[in-house]
Design a protein around this nucleic acid. Sequence first.
RNA 1: GCCCCCAUCGUCUAGAGGCCUAGGACGCCACCCUUUCAAGGUGGAGAUCACCGGUUCGAAUCCGGUUGGGGGUACCA
Length: 501
Amino acid sequence: MPAPRVRIAPSPTGPLHIGTARTALFNYLYARRTGGTFVLRLEDTDLARNTIAFEEDILENLHWLGIGWDEGPDSAGGEDHGPYAPYRQMQRTADHVAAAKDLLARDLAYPCYCTPEELDADRKAQEAAHEAPHYVGRCANLTPEERSEREAAAKRPAVRFRVEQGVVGWHDLVRGDVEFDTANIGGDFLIVRSDGSPLYHFAVVVDDASMEMTHIIRGEDHISNTPKHILLFEALGHEIPKFAHLPLILNPDRTKMSKRKSQTAVADYRAQGFLPEALVNFLSLLGWSTGTEEEILSLDDIAGRFDLEHVQKGGAIFDKDRLEWLNGQWIRKLEPEDLIERLLPFLEADHQAGRIDRVPTAEELRPLIPIIQERLPTLASAGDLVGFLWQDKVTVDPAVLVPKRWDAATTLAGLRAARETISSSTAPIDFEADELEPPMRALAEARGWKAGDLFMAVRVAVTGRTATPPLFDSLVALGRDRVLARIDAAIDTLERSEDAA
RNA sequence: GCCCCCAUCGUCUAGAGGCCUAGGACGCCACCCUUUCAAGGUGGAGAUCACCGGUUCGAAUCCGGUUGGGGGUACCA
């Protein structure tokens, strides 16, 4: 048996979709597992909606996910590589035209002169008669005379493929045997438009045939297209590839995942600070499982064990909570230097957006890693977690400044005492978490305060928030001067709000 | 409407006739750890395996039907 050839054929009419990424991933995995070849082909025939920016987005984000292809375009608008080039549908029109001519010559297809208006009327009549929509066959048996008559009237024909009566079936690699009666596929179907351009069903089959695809692994939404494809492969005299239809990725309401109801662009997840490792791990487990209880798996791990037998048949809801959990798992596995490198662009973005006043250096980030790594659900959450370090000033709400068990007067006393204690440290020598904590605890004890309350008051004074990394590490990161200045500022705002009250 | 596909905790899933009084994970709840928040640990709630009927000594697993959900029904891809 020859090595499998599989493909993903996205159309650059939108950014890389989660569903496309998942299908690409499964094809990629299948190829890697079986020693096959994974092909990327661009379905770029929709001139109206195609853009180079989308093409770029698709290729770039597949690369980002780590899903590389053996044959196909190297980059957006760039060169193709592989023995079956070109890998852009637009550049394969000669093939499509030749194949159509061939079918026409063998009377497996015929020119159709029906106008959209006629077709529309047919459809309406069928609807009224409660019939399934189908082509009525008006042009199926035109005589040569009748054809030339229409040609003379300057009618440009489309090309229609003859569908004979019978049953088309296949053994689906994930669903088992599937059968369709050709009576239910809508009659003779169009393969070439009147302007000469091929329709999707025809173009894919011609391309898949000439690129020698052995397995077509795609979404379940293509099941009902499969009989047409099989008929076309047969007519073209090409061996019929194996089909495997993957379950759909669903919106929370169990409908097919869509932009309207879910976030579908891979780029958006990327921008939100999801790791490619996490996304790939998550996507692979949507509709497939190892058969064991392991679930934190790298792309290589998965490629080593992927199989179509463990592909689920039912659709799977995209559970973002689970993705976030997986993302946290992967963030915690990262080497510190790697984390720093990945964090920087997000802090850059925080700066651009005005959420922080300057971007820290890698050196500044390094000592922070131990305290933030286990607290980050996403890379984008770093700014939220420790952004106070790079903000010129923090806004402190007097209401949250006062710990639950304290009143304003106690808070004022607490902050003044804490300031005193902290300022007596001889920075930078003593300004270390280990040096700061004991005197602060001693202070709390001496005054009869719960340490937690005192710490909370200082935490809010210095960061503006109630949830932060450990207090003393935060103080050290901030530096003595800024800590003191912020406590002063907090005391000041608390006093003012008291005066106002 | 018609055709096709699907059906195990809220969610992702394990399960290929006895190992299942159905396992894991996310989420949720509680406790532990603890200066807050996380992370981590422990425990808990949560599924009459959609329903009905077969087959079988025995069914979540096989068969049929019902119901429910989804997908497809274009000179879109």
